[in-house]
Structure formats: structure tokens, C-alpha cells
Design a protein around this nucleic acid. Structure first.
Lengths: 327, 327
DNA sequence: TTGAAAGCGCTAACAC
DNA sequence: GTGTTAGCGCTTTCAA
């Protein structure tokens, strides 16, 4: 592994000249440049990024902390974030917290250790204070930390409204919603509050079932479905995230219930899984690319010291029409 | 941001002593240790990992290069790899190449730049020679680079056999398989070779359709399905990856074809999506956690200079029984 | 058991 | 235009 010194020696110039030539700043004569190019080629020289990072005290890496990247919403989000970051010259480090606060803490610490230049946090296992005392670039997805940390989230309130509207227009009278229990301050909860409010306003009875905050997998949602969708239970509508909705559909099918004739289903997220169910899932779609873009703009904005980074960005949601409602 | 110097000054010892105390090597008196602990606390000191990395010339980061992490097989793989790497003290940097060889090259370069200690490559847009000339830790998923780079892959041959067996036992006579076109040397192709061989051996007619190597998304598979599954076409079996299989099922449904009565479908991968289709998809399941484990063992093995890293690891596959075949 | 000092590879201030 | 040199924060000889 040759260093800049070797290049300098080979090209009969000083390391400073090599550095200037390589970075394209400062004056370098055409002649020197030529010799350096040759030396670089001959020695197969690549700058040691570790040394550069050390000097600049930045890694050009952004950490992305999410609960579980196997969950389709998060895998799409990660992908979009990675691609946006790449275009800004940043690499992406990922962490699945899978509900383990130690993991979340560990990645938060990477900020202090200068291993990442910033953090995009979509996972909420860790206490608020842990985040607030870190005075480094952080943006939060769906979690409100107050003024200190920019917040990005879908218009969940509207999402709840749209879902309720679908139930109303389908003539539902008695609906269940599965709401992830959150101990933290998250706008994601708004959809369930709004859903319930609007439904009740129209005389629809709403049962809200709180589900685990740290489970994002098939097996869990299947358990939830079989636990709460018992044949004796009376309901004619379900509002829950797509993956859970898909599980509910499987459970209902076993009970010979017809969708949407007997039970209407409205999903949330808008991930692909809903396109493969039978019938196709009607769902409230979050605009993942837009969310990713906002996250990346915000984190790079903070890093670059811009003071126009919005504190609260709301991304629009929309209905993705399928055939699990009667309208 | 306080440095080790500040701690040393505060504790009235030398930086060397602080370093020893922090890293737990060399002799440090109880008294010095105590003073240093206090200083660290008082100054809220965290070691600068960038400096450490620079000194040690390693980053403790492993790059994971895959085509598209939105594709369920890869999102699951990434998750499993990340979790395994975490347990070995490594962080995970991800790259979606989405068929762009520049991106793949860029991440390969990170090895030379010392930004990652190793690379797990599951993406194949880049020329073989690019990999072979990098003399750093690399392991390949489903791509054969020869002796120089350890290869990890599912037992695709067996997968092809199992799929064929399902077709045979279902009494199919005329099957289609969608095979990703690969210009590189990949064991993944074996499944289609074996599938065709076994089917033909049993007098089943096989049509192999080559699909794009760099597309891993819903829209593309939907196009493929509507292009090749035309009503005039005669076939009674389809063998293709899960996501594509799910798309085929949607297309067949529109044509009022019954599954599995009119057409049998066998998927490949064993991802969750197959559990939500109607009927549930019968598929050949790859053991993703095991693949991840092998990748991580191999890459850490190389990094640690072990010479017992196997050159070719084959992970078993199995049938995940659903209801899209007649057996 | 401790401290002084060299050095990892690179950049940038400064002198020429 | 170019070279000399200090220094980024840390670890690790080596001598005391």
C-alpha cells in the first residue's frame, strides 16, 4: 500500500504538491501534474480515506436507524435514503434495532465517536434524553423530540381521516383498528386518534387494539389476527398497517368471511404486499421517496450548517385504491 | 470536543497512561485509573474513533453490495447480515447497485480507500477483473470468481430439482420458467438448468424465458407476466422467483385461470410475499439466516487471516408447501 | 508503573 | 508554483 510520500518521491516533488494535484486546489504546474499522474499510476496509489477522514474529522457516513429493515416500509425507506445520500456524496450505515435499545444506543454513540456525520432515526426504543444530550446532526422520522431535532413524518392525521372516510362510505358500523402502542411522542399515533374521532362522529363504533411497539414481523401480525379476529367477534371493518392487514385477510378467509362484503379492510403504508392479496388491498399510501428526500435534505442541511432546515416536515398521504372496501 | 490530551491534563498523567487505562492494556495503577475515570466523566470524553481507525488502519465496517434492498430476499439478507456483523463488532454499510455498475465500482473502491475492511458482494453488474485485482477481503454471494474469492450460495441445483419434482408430481406437461439472464458465472443459474433437465427427463416440455438481470421490482415482473402469459399460450406450470410468481398469479386471475387446477406455480426464494397470495404460494425456500451467517463467517475469517475459510459454501434449500401445486 | 516521543497519511498555513 | 513543516488524536515502543 503506497502512500502520498511514495508518490512524491517517485514524481520528484513534495507531498504538498501531490496533495494539491490530487485535490485540485492550489497551483500545480502542468509538468508536475503530469509526473504525479504517472507516479499514481505506476504505484497504483489510492488515497487512504481513513487519514483524510481523520484530518477533516468527518466520515461522510450517515447512520440510518430503523426497527427492522425486513419490514417492507423500512426496506423501501432505506433504499430511498441510501440512493439520496449517495447522490450527496454520503455512504449509508444501517442498524436494525429490532426493539433492542442497546443497539439504538450503540449507533447513537457513533455520533460522539465521529464515526458517522449524522443520524436518521426511525426507531424509538431509546429514551428521549439520550438524543437530546447529543449535540450532533440528527433528524427524526415519526418521533417528536421538540425544537432541537427536525421531525419528518407523513400526514398521519389525514391518513386517519382518509381511512375513516373509506369506512363511512362503505357503510361500516363497527370497526377495529390495530394501533401500535407507543410510549414515545410520535405523530404516527395521530392516524388512530383521527380515525376514531371521524368514525365516531359518524356513529361508527370503534374498537382500538394496542399492539406491540417493537414487532414488525409476519409471525406477530398473524398472532394478532388470530387473537382478535375470533369468529364470535362482531365487526365489519379493520384499519391496520399493510402487513397486518394481509394477515387479517388470511385469517378471515379461513373463517369463510367475504372481503369486502362482510368485512372492509383499509391498510396503511402502501407497500407492495397489498398488491398481491386477494382482493387487492385498499390502503393509505405513505410517500416513501418523498420522506427519504426530506430526511436527507434535513440531515445534510444540518451538517452544512444551514439555518433554513425546517423543524417539522409533513409529507402527504393518499389512498391507494384496491378492492377491500365497498366504495 | 475534548481529546485524550485534555483528559491527561485534567488527571495529571500522560496521554500514554490515559490510552492504556482506556484500552485496558499495559500497567496502570489503581490511583491513576481512578483519576482518569474522573477526568473522563468530568470532560465528557469520548475517544475519537476516526483517529483510532486511522492508526489501526481499519474501520470495522463491512460493505454489503446488493442489487436492490427493496426486494424481499435482499432486505432479509441485509438484515441478517447486519445482525451477524453487529455481533462480531462490525458495522454494516449498504449499497443498492440497482444495476448501475458505477455504484458497484464505487463501493469496491472503498476497499482500496480503507473505508471498509471487507465487502460482501451480492450484486453482479461489474466485470470480474475489477474484483480480482483488488487484493482485499471479499466474499461473493451467488457469483463464482474462482479460487481467489470465497463463494456462498444456496444449493440451487437441488432447488431446481425440487421444483421440477413438484411439477412432475402435479402432472404438468408443458411448463414455463422465467430465468434471470446472467452474463456472469453464477450458481443461481443452475436451478434453471437442473429444472429443465429433470422436467425433460420426464417428458415435460420446458420453455425458458430469459428476463432482465438488473430488475428486481414489482413493475418489471408485472410486465413480464403480462407479456408471456398471454391467453393463447399453452402451459400448465410456471417456475420463477416469488415476486414474479405473485405477479403471475394476479395476471392468471384476470384470465380466469384456476391455480393450481389450470396452472401450477412454484416460486423461488421463500419470502413472505408468497404467504399472502391466494392460494398460498408453493416455493423453494433459501435459508437466508444461514447464508448471512456463512457470509459473515467467511469475511471475518479472511480479515482475521484464518486459512480455513472454505472456498465454496453451499446452503441447503427446501420446499415451503403452499397450495399452488397439485401435490 | 509511567512519560516522552515517534508516527499513522494526509492537508494546509506559510515561507520561499 | 513549490517545499517545509506542524498537526489532526490516538497508540505504542522505549527508556526511565
Amino acid at each position: 500500500m503506497s502512500s502520498i510520500k511514495d508518490v512524491a518521491k517517485y514524481a520528484h516533488v513534495s507531498v504538498a504538491t501531490v496533495s494539491r494535484a490530487l485535490n485540485g486546489n492550489g497551483y500545480v504546474s502542468e509538468e508536475a501534474e503530469q509526473k504525479i499522474r504517472e507516479a499514481v499510476k505506476a504505484l497504483n496509489y489510492t488515497p487512504n480515506e481513513l487519514a483524510r477522514n481523520f484530518f477533516r474529522n468527518q466520515s461522510h457516513i450517515i447512520g440510518v436507524v430503523i426497527p427492522d429493515m425486513e419490514y417492507p416500509f423500512f426496506s423501501k425507506l432505506c433504499k430511498c435514503i441510501e440512493m439520496q445520500l449517495y447522490d450527496c456524496g454520503y455512504k449509508t450505515m444501517i442498524c436494525n434495532t429490532i426493539g433492542i435499545s442497546n443497539r439504538e444506543k450503540d449507533y447513537l454513540d457513533m455520533l460522539d465517536r465521529n464515526m458517522v456525520d449524522g443520524l436518521i432515526v426511525g426507531s424509538h426504543s431509546l429514551d428521549e434524553s439520550a438524543y437530546l444530550k447529543v449535540n450532533k446532526p440528527i433528524v427524526a422520522l415519526d418521533r417528536n423530540f421538540g425544537e432541537a431535532i427536525p421531525l419528518i413524518h407523513s400526514d398521519h392525521r389525514k391518513g386517519g381521516y382518509l381511512a375513516a372516510d373509506l369506512m363511512i362510505r362503505s357503510g361500516c358500523r363497527n370497526v377495529i383498528q390495530f394501533s401500535t402502542y407507543q410510549m414515545v411522542n410520535t405523530p404516527a399515533r395521530d392516524r388512530h386518534v383521527e380515525f376514531e374521532r371521524v368514525c365516531k362522529e359518524h356513529g361508527i363504533q370503534v374498537t382500538t387494539v394496542e399492539t406491540a411497539w417493537n414487532e414488525f414481523n409476519y409471525e406477530y401480525y398473524e398472532q394478532v389476527a388470530s387473537k382478535y379476529l375470533t369468529p364470535g367477534n362482531h365487526y365489519d371493518g379493520i384499519f391496520t398497517v399493510d402487513l397486518s392487514a394481509a394477515c387479517c385477510m388470511q385469517t378471515l378467509k379461513k373463517q369463510q368471511k367475504k372481503i369486502p362484503d362482510d368485512v372492509c379492510i383499509v391498510g396503511y403504508d402502501g407497500v407492495e404486499i397489498g398488491r398481491f392479496t386477494d382482493p387487492v388491498l385498499t390502503t393509505i399510501s405513505q410517500n416513501v421517496p418523498e420522506i427519504a428526500l426530506s430526511c436527507v435534505r434535513a440531515i445534510t442541511g444540518i451538517i452544512n450548517g444551514r439555518n433554513d432546515v425546517p423543524n417539522d416536515q409533513v409529507i402527504d398521504v393518499e389512498v391507494l385504491h384496491g378492492n377491500t372496501v365497498r366504495c
